[in-house]
Amino acid sequence: MGDDGAGALPLVIDDLSVVYGERRAVDHLSLTVHRGEIYGLLGSNGAGKSSTIKSIVGLVPPSTGRVRVFGLDVATEALRVKQRIGYVPEASMLYEALTPREFLEFVASVRGIPRLDASVRTNAFGAAFRLESELDEPIASLSMGTRQKVLILGAFLHQPPLLVLDEPLHSLDPRSVRIMKDLLARYVTDGDRGVLFSTHTMEIAQQLCHRVGILDHGVLRAEGSLSDLRERAARGDASLEEVFLSLTREDEGLDEAVRALEGA
């Protein structure tokens, strides 16, 4: 990706709003992913994480604002942006009638990946994720976890400078989660690439992310490293989960809700 703007940031979201009919899913969101950074997007169900991600990869047009990937505007330079992104969607919606190998051939063809690179990466990921025996099975017959591995493989196939991952670890087995965590941590060590990923799992965000943004009803409530957020929430040694619940005020009425469930 040699024509990346010199010094351009992997991802800049500026005043992004996404509106579906009457509902505002993302409300004037601005955030930045720096080179060499893993940025975690946290939020409850319906907070606007997936809508934000869909705007980045060009699936949902912004109602206001701009999204730029390495200086390229998603709205006007969609193809060049897509060449720079590896994307794992929230739901494993794949070509059910293809096998993983056929699917990866299609992805490699569209992305212009040389045969050797595509084969080496497919075999390496296949071995790491123990996918070898399923590479030639129809995707329709694969488990959710295996489909997720195929999507991850598709996202890494062209070694993109920006990874955009929507709940990438859900339905993965513990071994694959561990591999993914190590892989992501090493992926950005060259100082050029960036990763944005959304998750509900606070432990993973805490372990992996250099910075996190907390989305609540489409609004970015807080952003920064874990220590920044602890400071902001005035919770000195709290876990990210406690900080998250405090900043989004989701901890209010929590004990009552649990007690009500016990009595139900």
Binding site: G58, L59, L79, K82, P89, M93, L94, V110, R111, L151
Partner: peptide, 8 residues
């Protein structure tokens, strides 16, 4: 459909 549209 959704995945296909994210490819270049």
């Amino acid at each position: 459909y959704a995945y296909g549209r994210t490819l270049p």
